[in-house]
Design a protein around this nucleic acid. Structure first.
Length: 518
DNA sequence: AGTGCCGGGAG
DNA sequence: CTCCCGGCACT
């Protein structure tokens, strides 16, 4: 995960370079040598650098010559048919010409950047930065034009400080262009990211690095709230979803209050994930940062509504009153509301962004659902289905049978069930988390059998069907989950034990017969 | 006793 | 996941 992110960051911009360069090369170290020696271990240590390396490599092709052409840099140029050592006096990025002071001759010549060969193979510490942004490039040289006027003087100076010049040039960014800000933010993010990989060092470096850019960093967390949020939540959705799902769903509803409060009040994921490896560790910083500047809002998901409210209560009321109507079946309504709003993280100062945060983190929305979904699954599915498709005329029955179920072929239904049920729930719940959807699955089984029987019933007298279905669920509760024994003939009766191979699969497996449904 | 099928185990 | 079966509820 960390690597993914870092890769992503790396590609987006070169902050990686920015980050590592100043601290690493800052002190007049000869970039050429230093960097190369540092890089191996650095790249090992943190992925950001690795991506930086990629960048550097990529960049070498196009920018090989000029990107490192800093004033004072030692280069070779052809003059009078032979290669002469010289120092870069000025490199004009626009014309891509380089003014070089020939050491042997003591005067300047202009050469195309292509014709200039670097004295050493340099790994541009920051140049990567420049290649992405024209501004930085120009900026890096912003002082040069002045110096150019005084070429003679500049050159010697440059010579003296040649080794330094590169790094000096590199960590100049004093101005705060947008790009720079971005980079800072990204840089902070990356530093935090990479640092978070090593728990030991985690906190100290964190604070150190983030201090200068704390504000920016905050913004990053907020800005990329989508990204990191979405990313982390997406992933956390997977992780927590995975772990959450694996645990039995009943307990969920029991522990719901705890769950919910955790999810809402303190989004920090570290509590639960302490012992987990990188991915989880990585998540720590984000929630913390976010906690300060982001607040939770609730958005109505009702088509063409999009109302955003601050309180969960408010949104529920809104959904209930505005969209669901205060029906008699308040119990259903109560749960139904939950599916028509989504939690979203909103920057405190900014108004809720509909698009960015709409994708509500599954891991966070699930608690809501779980919290409030009392163990009464029958209504769950139907209720969800109703808004999506106009209520069917045939009353409670049709409501309780999602259309998807109807297409199940009786004979294969048993086998098809697992695959059908699962896809159906997410479809219905749309933005609802898998965890939630999954948690309902077990309890859904009753529905399954009912709807299945319904498909069978379509060929049979409706009255029976109706009564059966309506009565079915209540009676079942007292008698456990046992299905009422059907009257229809079953495979066993029809084919006999001797023709067991002709039984439907379910019958063979001693499951509810799918061929002769009641 | 016969039947239907849930829950769960084995591979 | 498929396949199987113990064991229970019901007839």
């Amino acid at each position: 995960m960390a690597s993914v992110l870092s890769r992503r960051l790396g590609k987006r911009s070169l902050l990686g370079a920015r980050i590592s360069a100043p601290p690493l090369l800052g002190d007049g170290v000869l970039v050429t040598t230093q960097v190369s020696s540092l890089q191996p271990e650095l790249s090992k240590a943190s992925s950001p650098l690795a991506s930086y390396e990629e960048q550097a490599e990529e960049s070498t092709n196009q920018n090989q010559n000029w990107l490192a052409l800093q004033p004072g840099q030692k280069v070779y140029v052809f003059y009078n048919g032979q290669e002469n050592a010289g120092l870069v006096d000025h490199h004009d990025p626009m014309s891509n010409e380089v003014k070089v002071l020939l050491l042997e001759h003591g005067f300047h010549i202009c050469r195309k950047a292509k014709e200039v060969r670097l004295a050493e193979v340099q790994i541009p510490p920051l140049p990567a930065l420049e290649m992405d942004h024209a501004t930085p490039t120009t900026m890096g040289y912003s002082t040069v034009p002045v110096a150019m006027e005084q070429c003679p003087t500049t050159a010697p100076i440059a010579t003296a400080s040649a080794p330094r010049s590169v790094s000096r040039n590199i960590d100049v960014p004093k101005r705060k262009s947008d790009a720079a800000v971005d980079m800072d933010e990204m840089m902070a993010a990356m530093v935090l990211t990479s640092l978070s990989c090593s728990p030991v060092v985690q906190s100290p470096p964190n604070s150190d690095t983030s201090i200068p850019v704390s504000q920016a960093a905050c913004d990053v967390w907020k800005e990329s709230g989508d990204m990191s949020d979405g990313g982390s939540s997406t992933t956390s959705g997977h992780w927590s979803g995975g772990s959450g799902i694996s645990t039995p769903s009943p307990p969920h509803s029991e522990a719901s209050p705890k769950y919910t409060s955790e999810a809402f009040s303190s989004p920090r994921a570290d509590d639960g994930f302490e012992t987990d490896s990188d991915p989880f560790v990585f998540e720590e910083p984000a929630p913390r940062k976010r906690k300060n500047s982001v607040k939770v809002m609730y958005k109505c998901l009702w088509p063409s509504c999009g109302k955003v409210l601050r309180s969960i209560v408010g949104i529920k009321r809104h959904v209930k009153t505005q969209h669901l109507g205060d029906g008699a079946n308040s119990d259903q309504r109560k749960r139904e509301e939950d599916f028509y709003y989504t939690e979203m993280q909103v920057k405190e100062e900014a108004p809720p962004e509909p698009t960015g945060t709409v994708a509500s983190p599954p891991s966070e929305s699930s608690p809501i659902i779980i919290q409030q979904a009392p163990p009464k699954p029958e209504t769950l599915v139907p209720e969800q289905a109703t808004p999506l498709e106009p209520p069917l005329a045939s009353s409670a029955l049709s409501q309780s049978a999602p259309s998807s179920f109807w297409h199940i072929q009786a004979d294969h239904a048993y086998q098809a069930l697992p695959s059908i049920q699962i896809p159906v729930s997410p479809h219905i719940f749309t933005s609802i988390s898998w965890a939630a959807a999954t948690s309902t699955i077990p309890t859904l089984s009753p529905v399954r059998s009912r709807s299945l029987s319904f498909s069978e019933q379509q060929q049979q007298p409706p009255p029976i069907l109706k009564s059966h279905l309506i009565v079915a669920s209540p009676p079942r509760a007292p008698s456990g989950t046992r299905k009422v024994r059907g009257e229809a003939k079953k495979c066993r009766k029809v084919y006999g034990i001797e023709h067991r191979d002709q039984w439907c699969t379910a019958c063979r497996w001693k499951k509810a017969c799918q061929r002769f449904l009641d």
